[in-house]
């Protein structure tokens, strides 16, 4: 479980998130949604310690994040970003092995883990010797997910993981991702700006605007009982094209 208590972060005087209180439940998928610049990605960066909060506390299973050994903590999180964040100079295999080797995990264990994850993410063994630039966008995201899962982390953080994909591939990957989340039963925090994607994945949705949480709850609650005009407008705007 990840808890944010009164967390504030400013970038050069401008606040990215203000007094955020949020809970990301264990084994659940929480989706952060909102317009660009609302602070949803900043929350992921705060959890991964890529940036530090100016005030407030972040707790992991009740323990204050700043007291946890950073190296151990990062071993327990997986992070997937929009363009995958794969290292272009390394083969797919080396991309996957980099972190495990860094933590001195033996080669056999690493190879077994790769075998498992290839099946889970539906990647063929032959792709391992290729380089990121030789793969399609969808395949790259699958590899990126594999890499994030290599050390079997407790927490999986995804920042617009499907944002750069074309609609058909996106749909296919959504289905596979949902299956993977269900099977692995991890604490998942996903950032998206797409409401239908949020509704599809989320046990809980947190809707943000201008660095603050506007409403949070299950997808049904959000759709049925929008607490204010912004939520209403956000929902209508996203739905209107479909209906």
């Amino acid at each position: 479980m990840i808890q944010l208590e009164e967390v504030t972060k400013n970038y050069s005087g401008k606040s990215a998130v203000k007094n955020i209180n949020a809970v990301f439940e264990k084994s659940q998928t929480t989706v952060l949604i909102g317009p660009s610049g609302c602070g949803k990605s900043t929350i992921l960066k705060l959890i991964t310690c890529l940036v530090n909060a100016d005030s407030g506390t972040i707790k992991i299973d009740g323990e204050n994040l700043i007291t946890i050994n950073l190296r151990d903590f990062r071993r327990s999180i997986g992070y997937v970003i929009q363009e995958g964040g794969l290292f272009d100079h390394l083969s797919i295999e080396d991309n996957l092995k980099l972190a495990s080797q860094n933590f001195y995990i033996n080669e056999e264990t690493i190879n077994d883990r790769i075998e498992q994850l290839l099946a889970l993410t539906k990647i063929e063994n032959g792709q391992l010797q290729k380089f990121p630039s030789q793969l399609s966008g969808g395949q790259r995201q699958r590899i990126s997910l594999m890499r994030a899962l290599m050390l079997d982390p407790e927490i999986l953080l995804l920042d617009e993981p499907l944002g750069a994909l074309d609609p058909l591939i996106r749909f296919e990957l959504q289905t596979d991702l949902k299956e993977i989340f269900t099977e692995l039963n991890k604490t998942v925090v996903m950032v998206t700006h797409d409401l239908s994607e949020a509704v599809y994945f989320a046990d809980k949705i947190i809707l943000m605007k201008d660095g603050e949480i506007v409403q949070s709850g299950s997808p049904e609650e959000l759709l049925k009982n929008p607490t204010n005009r912004f939520v209403q407008k956000f929902i209508t705007a996203q739905r209107s094209h479909v209906e």
């Binding site: 890529l50 190296r71 999180i77 992070y79 964040g85 972190a99 860094n102």
Partner: peptide, 23 residues
Amino acid sequence: QTRESAIVLGLSNFTILKKIELP
């Protein structure tokens, strides 16, 4: 993003320099 991915993977600064940045 590439650099951040490397950091979150838990790589040390030296490893990032040697294995990611210099290559």
